[in-house]
Computed example of a mutant assay.
Amino acid sequence: MSHAVHPVPTRLGAFARLAKLDVWDYYLAVPLAWSLCGPDGWGSAPVLATLGLFLVGAVGVVAGAVAFDDVTGFRDGSDWANYGPNAPARRLARKPLLTGELSEREAVVFGWGATLFGLLVWTWTVAFAPHSPLWAVLLLALCFFAAVQYSWGLKISYRGWQEVFLAGFGVGLVLAAVGLCTGELSGFAAVQAVLFGLGPLLFGVYSNTRDAAGDARVGRPTAAVLLSAQGNKLFIAGLSVAEVALIVTAAGLGAAPWWFSPAMLPAVALRVAQLRRGVGLGDLLGARLIGLHAHRATVALLVLVNLFAPVLGGT
Score class of each variant (00 low, 15 high):
Val178His: 13
Val178Ala: 12
Cys181Trp: 03
Cys181Gly: 11
Thr182Tyr: 05
Leu185Cys: 09
Leu185Lys: 07
Leu185Thr: 06
Ser186Met: 14
Phe188Glu: 10
Ala189Leu: 12
Ala190Glu: 09
Ala190Gln: 12
Gln192Trp: 11
Ala193Trp: 15
Leu195Cys: 14
Phe196Asn: 07
Leu198Thr: 10
Gly199Arg: 03
Gly204Ser: 12
Gly204Asn: 11
Val205Tyr: 12
Tyr206Val: 03
Asn208Ser: 10
Thr209Pro: 04
Arg210Thr: 04
Asp211Lys: 13
Gly214His: 11
Asp215Trp: 13
Arg217Val: 11
Arg217Ile: 13
Arg217Pro: 03
Val218Gly: 01
Gly219Ile: 04
Arg220Leu: 10
Pro221Ile: 06
Thr222Asn: 15
Ala223Met: 12
Leu226His: 09
Ser228Lys: 02
Ala229Cys: 05
Ala229Trp: 05
Gly231Val: 05
Gly231His: 08
Asn232Ala: 14
Lys233Gly: 15
Leu234Val: 08
Ile236Tyr: 13
Leu239Asp: 04
Leu239Phe: 05
Val241Thr: 01
Val244Arg: 02
Ala245Met: 02
Ile247Tyr: 04
Ile247Phe: 02
Ile247Asp: 05
Ala250Pro: 13
Ala250Tyr: 06
Ala251Trp: 02
Gly252Asp: 06
Gly252Met: 03
Leu253Ile: 05
Ala255Met: 11
Ala255Leu: 14
Trp258Cys: 02
Phe260Met: 00
Phe260Ala: 00
Pro262Ser: 00
Pro262Gly: 00
Leu265Ile: 02
Leu265Cys: 01
Pro266Arg: 00
Val272Ser: 00
Ala273Val: 09
Ala273Thr: 02
Ala273Phe: 08
Gln274Ala: 09
Leu275His: 02
Leu275Trp: 03
Arg276Trp: 14
Arg277Tyr: 02
Arg277Lys: 10
Gly280Ala: 01
Gly282Ala: 02
Gly282Val: 03
Gly282Phe: 01
Asp283Met: 08
Asp283Cys: 07
Leu284Cys: 05
Gly286Asp: 07
Ala287Cys: 12
Ala287Glu: 10
Arg288Met: 11
Arg288Glu: 11
Ile290Gln: 06
Gly291His: 07
His293Pro: 01
Ala294Glu: 07
Ala297Pro: 03
Ala297Gly: 08
Ala297His: 03
